[in-house]
């Protein structure tokens, strides 16, 4: 199964096998990755599953939807070019090995 590497702000990493089609938020929650809160459970309603992805990676991520873009304006940690909501990113085979950086704060 393809893996995602969740990296904490302090550099600690967890490699997690993620079933295809799952969101990167769900996989984090089900594997008890610290720092992904996901208050709304994936409804794109709370901006507490904010992550930084794709820096230094050639992987093409799906474009940021209108709703996600709006919610990214409201994250607790600073928004960067690499900011995404992990509830909106679905696992694909191409994402295998992707590093997902978790911000220091979500709320």
């Amino acid at each position: 199964m393809p893996k995602i590497i969740y990296r904490q702000a302090d550099g600690r990493e967890d490699a997690v096998e993620v079933p295809l089609g799952w969101s990167l938020m769900e996989a984090a929650i089900q594997n008890d990755i610290a720092g992904i809160v996901a208050e709304c459970g994936g409804g794109c309603a709370c901006a507490t599953c904010h992550v930084y992805v794709g820096q230094g990676s050639k992987v093409e991520l799906p474009e940021i939807g209108d709703m996600e873009g709006d919610m990214l304006e409201c994250t607790s940690a600073e928004r960067r070019d690499s900011s995404r909501l992990s509830c909106q990113l679905r696992m694909t085979a191409e994402l295998d090995g992707l590093v997902v950086d978790i911000p220091e704060t979500q709320t």
């Binding site: 309603a45 901006a47 709703m67 709006d70 919610m71 304006e73 409201c74």
Partner: peptide, 9 residues
């Protein structure tokens, strides 16, 4: 309604 940024504000 479909205005998440306004909701958060």
């Amino acid at each position: 309604i479909n205005r998440p940024a306004e909701h958060m504000a």
